[in-house]
């Protein structure tokens, strides 16, 4: 696990300070931390707890409750694939399984070269264009093996 530098810790304090005037700042701060570091580093939790006057256990409880927050960095690219019913109705699971098998990983894992993380999500609201995914934040509808192969090629070329 990468250690945070002094500069990183300063950045953490700035992020906390920037959100401290919000009501209920915990989740916005966690999002901002993940945006900054690509995950929510363990070391930031005690800083956050003391800034918000909460116990470390409470912050730990919050950060681990939500699927979005990662405890370790993701790959260079992130592909989210919908696993919910509308995409199931359009062969989504079979297409996703084929991709995972090809990459040799399972849901939530990163390829050994660190290039791509594949995460499952329950619904992206693109259900009339199923199956669907989100590649580095860009929506992809009517997913098929060909479109996913294009993603893999792009990842490998990057």
């Amino acid at each position: 696990m990468p250690q945070l530098s002094q500069a990183d810790l300063k950045r953490v304090s700035e992020i906390i300070a920037a959100h401290s005037s919000l009501d209920g700042p915990a989740v916005p701060i966690l999002h901002a931390l993940q945006e900054e570091f690509g995950y929510v580093p363990e070391e930031t939790l005690s800083l956050l707890a003391s800034a918000l006057n909460l116990s470390r256990a409470e912050i730990h409880g919050t950060v681990t409750f939500y699927h979005d927050f990662r405890s370790k960095p993701a790959g260079k690219h992130v592909l989210k694939l919908c696993r919910a019913e509308a995409c199931q109705a359009m062969n989504g699971p079979q297409i996703a399984e084929a991709l995972l098998t090809q990459l040799g990983i399972t849901w939530g894992e990163t390829t050994p070269d660190g290039a791509l993380t594949v995460e499952g999500v329950f619904c992206l609201g693109l259900c009339a264009c199923a199956p669907s995914g989100l590649y580095d934040g860009e929506p992809i509808g009517r997913l098929n093996a060909e479109l996913l192969e294009a993603v893999v090629q792009e990842v490998r070329g990057a």
Partner: peptide, 21 residues
């Protein structure tokens, strides 16, 4: 912004999440 939790569509769970828990 939510953080990936279907249950937060339930109104009281949503309020807890808004409060930071």
């Amino acid at each position: 912004l939510g953080a990936g939790a279907y249950i937060c569509g339930e109104e009281t769970s949503l309020l807890e999440s808004l409060e930071g828990r």
